[in-house]
Amino acid sequence: MSAAVSTGSHARAPQSAGVLLFRSGPPIAVLLVKPGGPFWRGKDAGAWMIPKGMIEPGESPVEAALREFAEETGLQLTAVPFPLCVVRQSGGKIVAAFAVEGEFDPATLTSIDFELEWPPRSGQLQRFPEVAEARWFTLPEARAAMLASQRPLLDALEARLA
């Protein structure tokens, strides 16, 4: 897997994995998701990302990527994704990204939920979907919409498909 980050030790940084689902087009299109919950509400540009999550003990990065994709979209991928690259997000999290060509209808999005004390210090737990929305983007649209730290995934995909 090519790295878009330095190759120093990442043992202490949280490790995540995700899948970039794409259509080869033309034009090339990628499926991005917007996280659920109160922090992301009302945000759009810079809020979209690939479905991803933590690598569990005993799980390979590709296994984690496929599990997280299914949990966050409701779609169980049957094709085997190829390694794309590794990025370090602004908070320090390391994300191993994989890519696979496929189809997904955003209207069928079914995400698992998470619990969060909301409002803060209220003592009240509320449930929110991990993913609030999924959408197909062309590469220029995706560059404007997604987290800056994940934009190298688009460059890696473009280079792989060239």
Rank of each mutant, 00 (worst) to 15 (best):
R143K: 09
E68R: 04
Q76M: 07
E68C: 09
P83K: 08
Q124Y: 01
L147C: 01
E71N: 02
A65L: 06
S149A: 15
L153K: 13
E141N: 10
A97W: 11
E72Q: 12
T138K: 12
T110W: 06
G91K: 05
G102R: 13
E115A: 12
Q124N: 02
E71Y: 06
S111G: 05
E117P: 00
R143W: 09
P81C: 15
T110R: 01
P81E: 15
A96D: 14
W118E: 01
L75H: 00
Q124H: 06
P152D: 12
D105T: 09
S122L: 01
F128H: 08
G74K: 03
D105W: 04
A96H: 15
G123T: 09
G74N: 07
E141W: 11
P106G: 12
K93Q: 10
A148W: 02
L139W: 13
G123H: 10
R135D: 07
G102D: 09
R127V: 03
L66T: 03
R135C: 14
I94H: 08
L84M: 10
G123Y: 09
A144G: 14
F69H: 01
V131E: 03
P83Q: 08
E68G: 02
W136R: 12
E101S: 11
A144Q: 15
T110N: 02
E117G: 01
E133H: 07
V131N: 02
R127Y: 04
V100L: 08
L77K: 05
R67P: 04
L139Y: 13
A142F: 07
R143E: 13
V80P: 05
A134P: 10
A99M: 10
V131I: 14
S111E: 00
L84N: 08
W136S: 11
F137Q: 11
G91I: 01
L109R: 10
K93I: 07
V100I: 08
W118G: 05
P140E: 10
T110D: 00
F104C: 05
W136D: 11
I94E: 08
A144N: 11
G102Y: 14
A107F: 04
P119G: 05
S149L: 07
E71L: 07
V86E: 12
T78L: 11
A70M: 09
G74L: 00
L153S: 10
T138G: 15
A132Y: 03
E115G: 06
L84H: 11
S122W: 01
G91V: 03
T78H: 12
V100N: 06
V86L: 08
R88Q: 15
A79G: 14
A96G: 08
L153P: 04
T78S: 15
R143S: 06
A134I: 10
L75P: 02
Q126M: 06
F82G: 11
R88W: 03
E72G: 00
E115I: 02
V80W: 11
A148I: 04
W118M: 01
A70P: 01
L139R: 13
A132Q: 08
E141P: 09
P81Q: 15
V95T: 15
D105V: 07
A70T: 02
L84E: 09
R88V: 09
E115F: 05
A148N: 07
W118Y: 15
E72A: 00
L153R: 09
R151E: 14
V80R: 15
E71Q: 01
Q126L: 03
G102F: 13
I94Y: 06
E103F: 03
T108M: 11
L153M: 15
T108W: 04
G102W: 15
G92E: 02
A97Y: 13
A148M: 02
D105A: 11
P119C: 01
Q150S: 10
I94F: 05
